[in-house]
Design a protein around this nucleic acid. Structure first.
Lengths: 347, 347
DNA sequence: ATGAAAGCGCTAACAA
DNA sequence: TTGTTAGCGCTTTCAT
């Protein structure tokens, strides 16, 4: 481990000078050739700063905490984590991910992270839920990912649920579907409402009436399958917009029971939350993949800007302008969604 | 943030005494009542040690690195991470998980972790693969999870693949299956060979001949489905042991094509690697779940013992003695597998 | 423009 | 049995 002391010795200067130079605070404080000298030696020796040592002085560890309980059970969070980690590293931060079981160990994990001096937190939920922010996080730089806090005051990054519903439905309309069903979730998640709104808006724009009989809200259980089956019988839809791929699965199963071929007799668009289907399974389903990576990337960037009290750097954000995949595409395709960032006040 | 200094002041002793007491090094070095006094004040004030500060002196950060590339794409690693994290926290360590894309950023991530002074590493692969250990890890305390290194010298924790195959096949035999097929993977993974061996051993023990025509090795692709379909036609198996749940899916699909009902006409046991199937989907499949949590837990425990050069504490390890789930159980059930730990020399 | 020195919180020799 | 002191690697006044 090469230290500043070492560099100082070789360069014949003091440690403080080295510190100044290596932190780029040498503007008009250190002579140019001295600075260069120091930099040269530093890179020759392969100097790596010791973030822990500097944290002692500065109070900044350059560590970020990422809290989520979904990491353990779904690959959902994977993309988010990867995105967040990528941004973190680019900005010179290390991200510590902790998976939690329930509220109990969540508090413990947060406490542990705080002991290690994390500079801020990312807090992720699944499917844009309304969340109680743990009290331990309230006094820290914090960004929510795919979640909304009760009070609506915490910055968060969420998919544009409305556009997801709108785009999916529009695509089904464009492909010639006449009776488009919505297979939604039971829980009062924000995503549910937003997507349904998008569905309605797309229908309205196409001059179609909203038909309640084409809507079902189902859970993750046995009755769900029967409810979807009943929908096939009662409303005979020829297009399906499914809240997630678990719901799409019900449609797949029921279509098989009715002898209907997806991509031929009926069209289906599902939103991929859980990655239920492995790469090549059920290729007939068109799956809209949420912009997980982008959400994570943006969230981490925002968090760092909060910590450093610097403005967010300009970035090219994903938007809904990206083309939708063709219906019944052979492989799940990914569309981008606009991300919504809230600051202090709910919009 | 309450510091030792603070405690020392209140207790009217020196910081070193506080340090001694709080690190339980006060055996015969500090008077009992003084020690108690210090402890009382510490807990009153809610003292939390600052691990970063002590690391500066001791060279130990009490941070563990967990490297895996599968975190992002499958929930597979989730249980392992949770187990490892649990053990780590119990032992007073913080675990930093990094997901990597490929070898490129793997090296970067490892370098970053080292800069932060992690005391050791967990390196996880999927499905017990033979792995090149990154050079950067070679000089560090290291434990592999569900992987084996080429040279066979790195301690690792792996499922007992043989028993998985043996148990699954035995169960199919017990349920009355006459022609038991094995649907395996293509890749030369250790898990593949071990499970196949277990399958053969179970057959032999039951006095049955091994029939090559009941074996297929398939990938994750279109031809795979056709290969399994051909197996149905050519060998007409009435029981299936599937390498993982992706393979089980093929069986499910082909059974449907042949009008065969799982749990009635044929029996299927799959090993759950990827959690392709959500909770209530395809409930007819009996899924053997790998002991992910336990592997992670054990691996982290082992790693800490390596770091601290202390013997592994006695623990109750999961074993194959746990009862297998009933065939065609309504929900995927979890069986335990014996874990194998190697030390210095391959057994 | 540069360096000396103090100090972040903690541990560990060494003194007392 | 306890306290003093030095120092881990770095940042930051404050002198020079």
């Amino acid at each position: 481990m090469v230290t500043m002391k070492e560099i100082a010795k070789r360069a014949g200067v003091s440690v403080s000078t080295v510190s100044l130079v290596l932190n780029n605070r040498d503007e008009g404080r250190v002579r140019g050739n001295v600075a260069n000298q120091v930099r040269t030696i530093a890179s020759q020796l392969g100097y790596q700063s010791n973030p822990l040592a500097s944290s002692l002085r500065t109070g900044r560890t350059h560590m970020l905490g990422f809290i989520s309980e979904d990491v353990a059970t779904t690959p959902y969070a994977g993309g988010i984590i990867l995105g967040a980690q990528t941004a973190a590293r680019e900005l010179g931060y290390m991200m510590i991910v902790v998976s939690t079981d329930g509220a109990q160990n969540e508090a413990e994990e947060i406490a542990a992270l705080k002991r290690y001096g994390t500079d801020g937190f990312l807090y992720a939920k699944m499917s844009n839920r309304i969340t109680d922010v743990p009290k331990a996080l309230k006094d820290m730089p914090l960004v929510l990912v795919d979640a909304t806090d009760e009070a609506g005051v915490v910055p968060s990054v969420e998919p544009d649920e409305f556009h997801i519903g709108y785009d999916a439905t529009t695509r089904l309309i464009a492909s010639g579907c006449e009776r488009i069903a919505y297979v939604g979730a039971e829980d009062p998640i924000i995503a549910e409402q937003g997507r349904l709104d998008g569905y309605r808006a797309a229908l309205a724009e196409a001059g179609r009436d909203f038909d309640e009989h084409l809507i079902v809200h189902v859970g993750n259980n046995e009755p769900a399958l029967e409810a979807v089956n009943a929908l096939f019988d009662s409303a005979q839809p020829d297009g399906f917009f499914c809240f997630n791929d678990a719901r799409a699965w019900y449609v797949y199963e029921c279509a098989a029971r009715h002898g209907l071929k997806i991509g031929h007799d009926i069209s289906v668009v599902g939103v991929d939350n859980h990655r239920v289907f492995a790469d090549t399974l059920v290729p007939q389903l068109t799956t809209v993949e949420l912009p997980h990576f982008e959400m994570g990337y943006w969230a981490a960037s925002k968090l760092v800007s909060l910590i450093e009290e610097s403005p967010l750097a300009d970035m090219e954000w994903p938007s809904t302008t990206a083309p939708l995949p063709p219906l019944n595409a052979p492989v799940p395709a990914k569309i981008h969604c606009a991300l919504i960032e809230k600051e202090s006040v709910r919009s």
